[in-house]
Write a protein that binds this DNA or RNA. Structure first.
Length: 111
DNA sequence: AACTTGACGGTCA
DNA sequence: ATGACCGCCAAGT
């Protein structure tokens, strides 16, 4: 799998995350076969800014439901506001009821 | 070329 | 439950 393919797939999955739901970097990495580590998914998100299409990167958090990448959204509370606009509740940079809001591509997506 | 740094995650003490 | 450690791999220095 080439590097560009990996990026493309990460973006494709990210765009499939339903509004008001979230997933984790590791979940996406697993869905893609775990060929690449979760760090690479985060790295892809970092590059999602310069992507022509909009990537809902704010719906991707770490496995604890923490907004680990909020500093990459310009302001420090932009990511939180985006999520709250979708009906999610953030408390202390962490998603409340994360377990229920979690959306696992490997589980929710067709093969 | 070598070393450090992460939008991470699983394991173990 | 908390924290240290380690594997991961591209980028930056």
């Amino acid at each position: 799998m080439s590097n560009d393919d990996f990026f493309h797939k990460v973006y494709a999955v990210a765009r499939l995350i339903p509004q008001g739901r979230v997933t984790s970097y590791g979940a996406i990495a697993r869905y893609l076969g775990a060929a690449r580590s979760a760090r690479m998914v985060g790295w892809a998100m970092n590059a999602s800014h310069s992507q022509p299409e909009f990537i809902p990167a704010h719906r991707v958090v770490n496995r604890n439901g923490v907004l680990s990448g909020k500093n990459f959204f310009g302001g420090q509370n932009v990511m939180q506001e985006l999520l709250e606009n979708e009906g999610l509740i953030i408390e202390d940079d962490q998603i409340v009821n994360f377990k229920e809001k979690f959306w696992d591509p490997a589980k929710e997506l067709p093969l």
